[in-house]
Computed example of a mutant assay.
Amino acid sequence: MEARPPFRPAVPAPGARLCWPAEFGRRYTIFVDTEEEFDWDAPFRRDATGVTATAAIPDAAARFTGLGAPLTYLVDHPVATDPRAVAAIARALEDGRSAVGTQLHPWVNPPFDEAVTPANSFVGNLPPALEAAKLDVLTAAIAQAFGRRPVSYRAGRYGLGTGSTALLADRGYRIDTSMRARYDFTAKGGPDYRAIGNDAFRVDGLVELPLTTIFTGVARRGGEWLHALAGRIPRGTGLLARAGLLNRVALTPEDMPQAEALEAVRVAVGEGLALLNLSFHSPSLVPGHTPYVRDARDLAAFWGWWDAVLGLLDRLGVRSASEADILDACAVANTPVSTDHAGGL
C-alpha cells in the first residue's frame, strides 16, 4: 500500500463558515469517543477489542444529565457489535436528548485488507475503496444495533483523508467532528489541522464541528505562529505555557488541567465563539484504560473537571446543545459576513 501525502485541509473560505441563528445563542456540545480498550503505549492490535468500560456509561450518563449535558456517543465497531455495550448505551439514550454517532478505528473495523501500521490507523490514509467499505460495515452495524442510521461522525485519531467528507455525505452523514483545531498529526502519519479554527463550516455537504482548541496567555493573539515556532525548539511549548505567555488548550479533561480549561472557556466565550465542542474517551470512565485516568484519584479529577467546566459554562449563560439541537440550527444557519472570531485564539 503506497504512502499518501498528509491531508492538510485549507482555511475554510468565508462563505463556508456557519453563522448560527440568533435563537441558537451560545452553546456547548459533548462528543464521546465510545470505543474499545487498548494499550495506548503499545502497537495497534486487531484482537484488542474489549469493551468492559462501557458498563460505566449509564451511571456516567446520569451524572451528565444531572449537569444538564446530553452526550453524543461516537460508537466504533467493537462497541456496536457487543450486545452488552449496546445495551449500556441504550440505557444512556433514555434521557431523550443524547444520541449515537460513528467513530471509525480501522484496525478493528472490517474488512481487514490492510496491514496494521501506525499510518494505517488513520483511516483517511487507506485507499478510498477500503475506507468506504469500512465505513459501510460500521454504519450498518450501528443502524442495526440502535435502530437508526447515524448522522454524526469522527474518524478515529482525527484521521480524515482527502476524500473522507465526500464519502460521509454520500452515506447520509450530516456532521463531521474529526478535525482537532490547531493540531498537527503529521509526525505520526496523520493529518495537519493547523489551518482549522474553531468555527463550524460547511464542507462537501457536511457541517464540520472542529474540537475546540483555544490559545490562552498574554501572547495568545500570536498563538498559531508562535506555538508552531516554539514547537521547533525542545520543550519550547512547555516553556511558553509555564511562563504564562502561551498555552494551547483543547476542551477535554484528558491531559488538559482544570484551571487551563476554565481560562480557555472564558477566552472562547469572551471572543464570541458560538459553539464550544468538548470531548472525552469512554474508557476514561474506568481507571486503568487510558493514560488520562490511571487510578481513582485521576477519576475524581476527571469528574471535578466536568463539574467545574460545565458549572462555569452555566454561569456564563452557555447552554448545552444536543445533536438534534445542532442539526435544527444547521438547517437555518447562514454564512457569516465576518471572519473567524475565535479561530486564532
Rank of each mutant, 00 (worst) to 15 (best):
4 R>T: 00
7 F>P: 01
11 V>P: 08
14 P>T: 04
18 L>V: 10
39 D>A: 14
43 P>L: 06
44 F>C: 07
45 R>M: 11
46 R>G: 06
50 G>C: 08
52 T>W: 15
54 T>Y: 10
54 T>S: 13
57 I>N: 07
59 D>M: 14
62 A>D: 15
62 A>Q: 15
63 R>K: 14
63 R>C: 12
64 F>R: 11
64 F>Q: 13
70 P>W: 10
71 L>M: 13
74 L>H: 03
78 P>L: 05
80 A>Y: 03
86 V>Q: 02
96 G>W: 12
99 A>K: 08
102 T>I: 05
103 Q>R: 10
103 Q>Y: 05
106 P>Y: 00
109 N>D: 05
109 N>W: 02
109 N>I: 02
111 P>M: 00
112 F>I: 03
114 E>Y: 04
114 E>Q: 10
118 P>I: 02
120 N>W: 00
127 P>E: 00
127 P>H: 01
130 L>W: 01
132 A>C: 04
134 K>G: 00
137 V>L: 05
140 A>Y: 05
146 F>H: 07
147 G>S: 09
150 P>R: 01
150 P>C: 02
151 V>G: 00
152 S>P: 06
156 G>M: 03
159 G>R: 01
159 G>E: 03
159 G>I: 01
166 A>H: 03
166 A>L: 05
166 A>F: 03
168 L>I: 01
169 A>H: 04
169 A>D: 01
170 D>I: 06
174 R>G: 04
175 I>F: 05
175 I>M: 06
181 A>Q: 03
187 A>F: 10
187 A>D: 12
188 K>T: 15
190 G>R: 00
192 D>K: 04
198 N>S: 11
199 D>G: 13
200 A>T: 12
201 F>A: 04
201 F>L: 04
203 V>I: 15
208 E>V: 06
209 L>M: 08
215 F>W: 12
215 F>A: 09
215 F>I: 12
216 T>I: 08
219 A>V: 08
229 L>Y: 11
230 A>G: 08
231 G>V: 09
241 A>Q: 09
243 A>I: 10
245 L>I: 11
248 R>Q: 14
253 P>R: 06
259 A>W: 09
259 A>L: 13
266 R>C: 14
269 V>E: 08
269 V>P: 07
270 G>V: 10
271 E>Q: 14
278 L>F: 09
286 V>P: 06
289 H>C: 13
292 Y>G: 11
297 R>I: 15
297 R>E: 15
300 A>Q: 15
301 A>K: 12
304 G>C: 07
308 A>Q: 09
309 V>D: 08
312 L>Y: 07
321 A>V: 09
326 I>H: 07
327 L>D: 06
330 C>I: 10
330 C>M: 07
336 P>C: 10
